[in-house]
Nucleic acid binder design. Structure first.
Lengths: 336, 336
DNA sequence: CCCACTTGAATAAACGTTAACCCTGCCAAT
DNA sequence: ATTGGCAGGGTTAACGTTTATTCAAGTGGG
């Protein structure tokens, strides 16, 4: 029912190809017919059928964005950045969230490939050494960029933050603020949390402290795990005077536990989060945090992917580490 | 380069149509060949080319989701709900954010139509009586559902919250808590803010108070406008003892202004927001707010759209108003 | 006046699938 | 022997574009 090039062609008694050429500004067309075609197209309110075009050009100008969950502000921000970056190039993004389920993730990747996306951006939850999903993507020669979570043993493009630097930056800030029994509420058992922990350890030893395992409390990503973890940490003596939390939600949970225990923030315990989520500055005590350049991750990943799509030949896989930045607020503002 | 039905057909010396029929479980195919086809398809790791299928079936199993901005937790939550609701039906969503720019919104709608989406979900920013964009959608017979922001003068499906009820609910709660000089930090000059204001007014008059215009302060959507608005409101005498804020960010800004002025919350001034964004309970003083059933909006809009797409005949346009719910927290917890 | 070249356009074929028919055996009932 | 029906396929023609090739007419030079 919608208007096609055929309709325009018949009206003007020219061939469909002529119409196509005019609309693409290609080939040699006289100014007269060009004008006629354009006018008729406007009159009929012609809209290109991208499905048909994609079938023959083998380009959909569509990229798949695969995220663990996009209600999370971190990923929502990335989605925003990606969408804004690719729009000027004529791309749209198909999103899919897989709720941290590796199987769902793999099946969504297959769906997106079936939809012929020109490229993929993935914050993957695939466990280490399960590379089958990526193999399938590579077989199809579909460019893809990993973000946020690197995958060991995979030669692929990656854009993310330097997580070791986050750990060091946070820990050194606490040291500067005079803390000397620094705890860490660590994240889940994956690469990122591991690296932040590593940065924390290195900063401690570099400044002559000995990392003590009882000050390192296992946890997860959410604020409830932060709450539980902090309560556990408060039971360890001598009590900590500074805590580096895996991320901002964890820090928020920890903050609740500290205040509930009747302790003062930052005077009794200073707190550093990571992520700089948008609301970090309207909390009970505004949270010092490490900014991980969230939107930059999205922008760089999108640009990287687009250049990959544009270049016929496969380029070397490229890894971009964004340097984190400290954002100081009340939760660590105290006299050394 | 990817495997096509043709490849399978040649290998097995059958016709492409036979392969197609097997893969769709249609037509009469013997068990023997069915098995052979399926086996070969698996061996070659065949993936359907959805672009080609869409061209002939005129269905992309794709819906366009158009939002003002999806870094905003409200819209991010809606996106999540929509995506999860449509996935079991085989749909994917193409998102686009238009940064509150009506022209960009219109052009994105056109792009999505050109991409042959099967339906649209839109939280529109079109000014009243600018219906051209919607006309174009209707001409193509593409089903669409408006969410959150109704458009006057348009017979279209709509899913949103009952904003008058939000205003009433919040105001009556403040009255119950013993407030008798109730202010309102209102939102931008659009329908939603108007309705919440209307609910506020009605609740006041219903309880024998006279709405006073100096207690109604104009504003916007963000926390800075909440801060500015509250400072203005504090200059009005006799000073208010309860404020209903257009939304949670505004309330957060207002909270900062109140605390900065050395006033106590909720004892001097009680505060109610609207939206129940995820972090409302980790603020300096946890915020009483009105839950607007965000994810429900996404779910219902998605379901409505899918039934519209499925039904050949055009149905009557349907409007769904979700009843809001009060979520009481510290910011209003005081003795009447 | 013929050849070569250019301009402006038409024609044919493809992209990978599906929809709508058509064909060929085979079997049972007439 | 004819008819009818059905199982198990195959053929043909779309879907709306683009790419590649071909063609007709005009133009300028020798």
């Amino acid at each position: 029912m919608p208007v096609t090039m055929m309709d325009i062609a018949k009206d003007l008694k020219v061939s469909v190809v002529t119409v196509s050429k005019v609309l693409r500004n290609q080939g040699r067309i006289s100014d007269a017919t060009r004008k006629r075609v354009l006018r008729r197209a406007k009159e009929l309110n012609y809209q290109m059928n991208w499905v048909a075009r994609s079938l023959v050009t083998r380009r959909t100008y569509t990229i798949g964005l695969l995220l663990p969950e996009f209600a999370h502000p971190f990923f929502a921000e990335i989605a925003r950045a990606v969408a804004q970056t690719v729009r000027p190039h004529g791309y749209h993004i198909v999103i899919s969230s897989f709720e941290e389920d590796p199987d769902l993730e793999a099946s969504e990747v297959d769906s997106l490939l079936a939809r012929q996306v020109d490229g993929l951006i993935i914050a993957s939850s695939q466990p280490p050494h399960r590379l089958a999903m990526f193999k399938r993507v590579q077989e199809r020669n579909t460019p893809y960029v990993l973000i946020d979570r690197p995958i060991v043993g995979l030669r692929a493009c990656f854009v993310g933050v330097d997580n070791r630097a986050i750990g060091s930056l946070a820990t050194e800030h606490l040291i500067e603020r005079g803390c000397c029994r620094i705890g860490h509420l660590r994240g889940p058992e994956v690469g990122i949390a591991e690296e932040r922990l590593e940065g924390y350890r290195r900063a401690l030893t570099r400044h002559g402290f000995r990392p003590h395992s009882s000050y390192i409390v296992a946890g997860g990503r959410g604020d409830d795990t932060g709450y539980d973890g902090m309560r556990k940490l408060l039971g360890v003596g001598p009590v900590t005077d500074g805590v580096f939390c895996y991320n901002d939600p964890v820090a928020i949970g920890a903050m609740r536990a500290i205040l509930e225990a009747g302790l003062k923030l930052p005077d009794d315990i200073a707190l550093v989060g990571a992520g700089n989520v948008h609301y970090s500055d309207v909390l009970a005590i505004p949270l010092t945090t490490i900014d991980q350049g969230t939107s930059q991750i999205g922008v760089l990943a999108a640009e990287l992917l687009i250049t990959r799509i544009a270049s016929k030949r496969s380029m070397r896989s490229q890894k971009i580490l964004i340097p984190p930045k400290l954002v100081e607020r009340e939760s660590t503002r105290r006299q050394p």
